[in-house]
């Protein structure tokens, strides 16, 4: 066994297939994550507010502090791992080297912002839900763009 750096991914069919499947699974995660959020946590201002703060009229309890911390702890781990893995693949396969760093920064910052804004909404002011949703949708959009671009490059690029 000898470990080497792969200079041209196009010539390494095995590695190329692994990365294609990885990106496909990230797309699946993105879709499943949106569906789960839509059904449980909420994807609109009202539904997120209802989940976090409950409603006396509808007899819905607010989210306890322990449950909120458990939720956000898990979110941090997944957002971090997905963003980081995707960035590593994207940087390797993208051609527009100049926009790599800003795009990776934007992806990471939107992920970080969605976590911080959710914490701010729960502990400080419900107004931060707007910024949470804005960051959340931006993170998902960038994730989808970078995944699809990566897949396109892996399938159709002449050299990688």
């Amino acid at each position: 066994m000898r470990f080497t750096l792969i200079k041209d991914l196009k010539k390494e069919q095995g590695m190329k297939n692994i990365l294609q499947f990885l990106l496909f699974f990230i797309l699946l995660y993105l879709t499943a994550n949106l569906l789960v959020k839509a059904f449980s946590f909420g994807l609109t201002l009202d539904s997120v507010a209802l989940t976090l703060f409950g409603s006396e009229e509808n007899f819905i309890d607010p989210l306890s502090q322990a449950s909120f911390l458990e939720y956000i702890h898990t979110e941090i781990f997944f957002i971090m791992m997905v963003s980081f893995t995707l960035s590593a693949v994207y940087i390797r396969v993208a051609t527009k080297k100049l926009i790599n760093a800003p795009l990776v920064s934007l992806l990471m910052l939107s992920g970080l912002s969605s976590i911080l804004m959710l914490g701010l909404a729960y502990f400080v002011t419900p107004k931060a839900i707007v910024f949470y949703l804005g960051s959340f949708y931006l993170w998902n959009f960038l994730l989808a763009y970078m995944t699809l671009y990566g897949l396109w490059r892996l399938f159709f690029a002449k050299s990688l």
Binding site: K97, A101, G111, L112
Partner: peptide
């Protein structure tokens, strides 16, 4: 690729700090 990877790692560390 250095710059992009370094940015990526810095953000990973920020996430880790939040974790």
């Amino acid at each position: 690729l250095q710059k992009a990877y370094k940015y990526s790692l810095l953000y990973f560390l920020l996430f880790s700090f939040l974790l």
